[in-house]
């Protein structure tokens, strides 16, 4: 995972993207969450050797990026940064699966390479789907959506607390670990002897902070119950959004569009 400062920048960047103005930003969060989950479920439901059949699914990130006015390069960059993990995960497939499944001219492609490519595509699509969801919705709204979809309120509320104090703690942790690095010579001083007290101090400070937050809540009349003010409506636009994408996902899942297209072209244009 990224460094403390890098993570902080990432969070802030995503936060600013979610602050944007677009028809997709204005959609009710539940609709976006559900469509994203459905999208991902579609992606992973393909056969392990599926490659061409999955390509049309890129329509989802493409449309969402464009309509949501998100910077494609940034999202693509993040996906590329995370893809090595998918590469590592699929790395073994070509080693273990030697069967030739596909011939293009004289080129023989083994099942291992096909499934490896498939894993790469899966990785890109699922990672992209998740990032787009966050960039269009923002974390607090996703928490609210989770709650409205039936997640316990206590869980949703402490998720919000976690997110709120991520920013504070990443900064605090960054300061502490910088102070430690500045006083270490090379790797000396970065070992366990300085690590445990550093983490311990950070933990104690965090604990005291939690106590102060609780006091601040009490001072404003908190009695153990969290109230919500936001009312969001799952309206016609949301329904259209949800049903439109679901229909498309199912259609693409059932028919291999590229192959149909390819057959069409090769048969009618000799």
């Amino acid at each position: 995972m990224a460094s403390l400062d890098g993570a902080l920048l990432d969070f802030k960047r995503m936060e600013r993207l979610a602050d944007g103005e677009s028809p997709l930003h204005r959609l009710e969060p539940r609709a976006k969450l559900l469509v994203t989950l459905l999208f991902m479920a579609t992606v992973i439901s393909y056969d392990r050797y599926a490659v061409t059949a999955m390509i049309p699914l890129f329509i989802f990130p493409v449309v969402m990026l464009s309509l949501g006015n998100l910077p494609p390069a940034y999202i693509a960059g993040k996906i590329a940064l995370l893809t090595p993990f998918a590469v590592a995960a699929g790395f073994f497939n070509p080693l273990f699966d030697h069967e030739v499944l596909l011939r293009i001219g004289s080129l023989e492609i083994t099942g291992g390479w096909l499934s490896f490519t498939s894993i790469l595509l899966r990785g890109m699509l699922t990672i992209g789907g998740g990032l787009i969801l966050v960039a269009l919705t923002g974390f607090p709204a996703i928490c609210r959506a989770l709650e409205q979809l039936g997640a316990p309120r206590l869980f949703a509320v402490q998720l919000l607390f976690l997110y709120r104090y991520l920013f504070v703690l990443l900064e605090e942790g960054g300061t502490l670990s910088r102070a430690r690095e500045l006083r270490s010579v090379g790797k000396r001083g970065l070992g366990m002897r300085s690590f445990a007290p550093l983490i311990g101090h950070l933990l104690l400070r965090t604990w005291r902070r939690a106590e102060r937050i609780h006091l601040a809540m009490l001072a404003r009349g908190f009695t153990g119950e969290f109230h919500t003010t936001r009312e969001s409506r799952f309206g016609g636009r949301e329904l259209l959004f949800l049903s439109g994408w679901s229909t498309l996902f199912i259609t693409l899942r059932l028919w291999n569009l590229p192959r149909l297209l390819g057959t069409l072209v090769t048969e009618f244009i000799p």
Partner: peptide, 30 residues
């Protein structure tokens, strides 16, 4: 909800943030 007092929710949230930050601080293995 049943067993803890209302201090627990902020504590849980902040400790979650702590774990998140702590996971990014490294130590060198001798």
């Amino acid at each position: 909800r049943e067993e803890s007092d209302d201090r627990t929710i902020p504590l849980m949230g902040v400790l979650g943030a702590f774990i998140f930050a702590a996971q990014m601080i490294n130590f060198s293995i001798p």
